[in-house]
Amino acid sequence: MPRGYPERPQTGESDQLPAKPAVRGVSFSISPGETLALVGESGSGKSTIVRAIAGLLAPTRGRLVFDGQDITLPVERRTKELRRQIQLILQNPDASLNPRHRLWRIIGRPIEFFFRTSGREQQRGVAELLETVQLDAGYMWRMPSDLSGGERQRVAIARALAARPKLLLCDEILSALDVSVQAGILNLLRALQAGHGLSFLFISHDLAVVRSLAHRVAVLYQGELCEVGGVREVFSPPFHPYTEVLFRAQPVPAPGEDLPTDVPSGSELEGEEAVPACPFAPRCPRKVGSICDRVPPPWSTVSATHAIRCHIPGGELAKLQAI
């Protein structure tokens, strides 16, 4: 059964509102067993979207649909079953585990809460989950402070899995970790998806990570989507100019490459000027002219699954960006 989460209809023009909302007219969907990566910098509204899907923030407008059912509800009004099926993992493993609880309690709580098991059975569940995330079952007696950052993030994953969810919302879950630890967790996420048929909404500013995990990618800039497509499509020309900038900023895992070209900085003192029709216009290296400031750019379809929101048509972008 396909699942979709259209978020805020694209017709949601917000010019009349006194302040620009953090996220405007964003729509996307995720199929079962699929990983959608949402790419963007801090302040792009990625976390706002995650929190809206988790029911922690109420959208001003728009709809969230899960398994064909409208879930545009705050968390208090959602059914327990729904809350169980959507689980959240957050960025900072130091802050996401209660420092006063042992791991059996941290991981055991969702088991107790959703499945009403306790005692021996709950403990067995905790041990299994710890093994699923490749930690020793004996870890259940430890405190979070005894663990390294990577281990804590594995515990956070185990806690989310304890609810046996269908959709995992992962908000920048790798960015606080060492590269060598990231690699291990990426492998774990892949194994989990294969084994449990999970869907991921994977939020990251790191294109490298996205490339190795995602099936589809949506690029977000200051609260608006600017490119959506399959991972291969997004990672090869034509790019949205912002995606192009992100690519050039990527550290390359090989020496002898030139330093990334300086990324246009544009207006760094944000919040001073009004956001133009295309939010990326002030930093855009391929800005066409005043049309970018005045007219919201249209979506142009590159393929059935790949769309770019820019005044420059996809074909022309491809020509400009061919190396």
Binding site: S96, N98, R109
Partner: peptide, 21 residues
């Protein structure tokens, strides 16, 4: 802290969050 956010997203009651977390 994030662990409180996680508990809220799970749908824990205010009382449970207050005394457990």
């Amino acid at each position: 802290e994030d662990f409180v956010t996680i508990a809220r997203a799970r749908g824990e009651s205010a009382w449970s969050i207050a005394h457990k977390e």
